[in-house]
Design a protein around this nucleic acid. Sequence first.
DNA 1: AATATATGAATAAACATTCATTCATTTATT
DNA 2: AATAAATGAATGAATGTTTATTCATATATT
Lengths: 195, 195
Amino acid sequence: MARKIDEDKIKRIKEATMKTIVDFGIESTTIAMIAKNADVSGGYLYRTYSGKQELINELFYEKVIALNNELAFLLSLNPTSIQPLLKTFIANRIVYFLNEPIASNFFYQLLHNDNFKLTGDLQQSVVNMMQKIKSIGIKSGEISEKITLFNLYFYILIYPVDYIHFKRKNIFESNVINTNDITSLTSTILNILKN
Amino acid sequence: MARKIDEDKIKRIKEATMKTIVDFGIESTTIAMIAKNADVSGGYLYRTYSGKQELINELFYEKVIALNNELAFLLSLNPTSIQPLLKTFIANRIVYFLNEPIASNFFYQLLHNDNFKLTGDLQQSVVNMMQKIKSIGIKSGEISEKITLFNLYFYILIYPVDYIHFKRKNIFESNVINTNDITSLTSTILNILKN
DNA sequence: AATATATGAATAAACATTCATTCATTTATT
DNA sequence: AATAAATGAATGAATGTTTATTCATATATT
């Protein structure tokens, strides 16, 4: 065998990619900047990724899949109420934002970039989970019949992320995101879904 | 005088810029693409704008200022209830989306790009308007005392835009945005603000 | 003819990507 | 145990492409 792979390099590349995009925007991030921030040679990236786009794609879908799995796990517990599911899911978003602000920010940026869309099977998985949540919520009386699957998707998966990140960059009162937001976001969403 | 300025060119450049960014993303949009789509020579742009960034900036802030003025106008009517104000504002967002999908989409993309932020005086203007809306809403009983200025800002200015655009690209039921969304969005937001 | 608009080829800088080379580590041979 | 050979990791200068921007020139208008 030859020299050992420095596993840390890939980790550093991922982190540097996210940080550079968060700091300068996807439009001005270059491979050279990423390599420099990761303290890795310019060409190293191409050993693992076929190029810049693939690297960014993989980082984004990694996170999308993690979110998908997280929700799937919460549903696998067969809850009879959506309140605890929603509260846990929102708490996780806030904890993630607090613990990994760069990754959280990176994900938020790409979430609104039309060039990144869900692939077919992930789409189907999300649709199935929303259907499951809807039937639980209707049975428990927490969700109005009028709520569409899109509404559920928007209020559970998109809205909390948006809220957190707009609060982060907001222009008003000094707004630190904290655990109080878990309760208020959860109750706001539950309230919306009831009507 | 000499040759007349073809005023239409600037309009075409603006439209081509928005369309190109909507179609390919800000990260892959080039001056050459914009010029081609606008049917204008490559260098023409530099007659009016100092460069690519300034062009995009100006387009974005034009829209931000228009939104600001729209809300300022609605407030200048000295309403005693926020319901009609909110309903009109949301209706305008939906009409804008339906009539000018490209411009609407362009604005939505940049709204979530951290490189585009409100300048000082626009910030102040927004803060003032939110304060005014809050005092009207509290007097009329439509807004809970607990609602922060950030909440108002988020639910009035950000949330409807996000909702419309996520519905546009959504993965569920065939979702055509239409005038029904005006009523449902308005009542959802009023409901949120009450609690 | 004078003057300002408009063009697009030319330029130079920035960029992603490649690849010859170096280097660290393991394995085989003595 | 010492040394050599083999392997594949890692580098970063070189390459060719893409890009924003400039500017000499052409064109239209008065």
